[in-house]
């Protein structure tokens, strides 16, 4: 899957905006949004928030996890945890990328937040890579990947599935041989 497709999926997530206009509910096919009252926060999908922001019709409120201290705490938890920690958002990386690049003046300390998100991402990706390597080396064709986000899973696709498929083929080729070896030992 292309990263832009992961982004496409992530854009459905809701974010809080403060519109500068008033309008009744909008009945989208995917559900209702609004009503919009100037100055009052309302939740809309990110794709819509970005569009409205671009047209200068709203201000975007950063989700509360998009904060330097909170992100650093998450990073520390991730480092000390053997498994993967649950992220505040299924698409934390995409949401961060999208919101931080669209809204420099709405969100304070943008650069620091960007760094904090990237650090968290790097820790998790590096852990993922080691886990993948261990998984391949110890064999087996099944693993549990709770709390990995879509973009992270996508980073090892198709490398990991293809490697597993290949090992499966290598082992199947031998199975014919082993059965024959066992038979010839009679």
């Amino acid at each position: 899957m292309d990263p832009s497709e992961v982004e496409f999926i992530a854009e459905k997530e809701l974010v809080s905006i403060v519109p500068n206009f008033t309008n009744s509910e909008v009945h989208l096919i995917s559900g209702d949004v609004g009503p919009f009252r100037a100055g009052l926060p309302v939740n809309v999908p990110i794709w819509m928030a970005l569009n409205l922001r671009q047209r200068q019709k709203c201000r975007i409120i950063a989700p509360d996890w998009l904060d330097v201290e909170k992100l650093e705490a998450l990073k520390e938890e991730e480092k000390s945890n053997r498994f993967f920690t649950k992220m505040p958002s299924e698409h934390y990386m995409v949401v961060a990328q999208l919101l931080l690049s669209a809204v420099d003046d709405d969100i304070p300390r943008v650069e620091e937040i960007r760094m904090a998100v990237k650090d968290l991402w790097d820790v998790r990706i590096s852990k993922l890579r080691s886990s993948v390597d261990t998984f391949i080396k110890t064999g087996g064709s099944h693993a549990r990947l709770d709390y990995l986000t879509t973009m992270e899973i996508n980073s090892v696709r198709p490398l990991l599935p293809h490697a597993l498929d290949f090992i499966d083929r290598l082992q199947k080729a031998s199975e014919g041989a082993s059965r024959r070896d066992m038979a010839s030992q009679d």
Binding site: D133, I136, K137, G139, L159, A163, F166, I167, L170, Q171, A173, S174, G176, A177, S178, R180, D181
Partner: peptide, 19 residues
């Protein structure tokens, strides 16, 4: 054959990290 296949499987598993 079974020795050959062991070598194939083990080699790939080790080399995969580099890839």
């Amino acid at each position: 054959s079974s020795e050959i296949s062991s070598v194939l499987v083990e080699s790939f598993k080790q080399r995969f990290r580099q890839i």
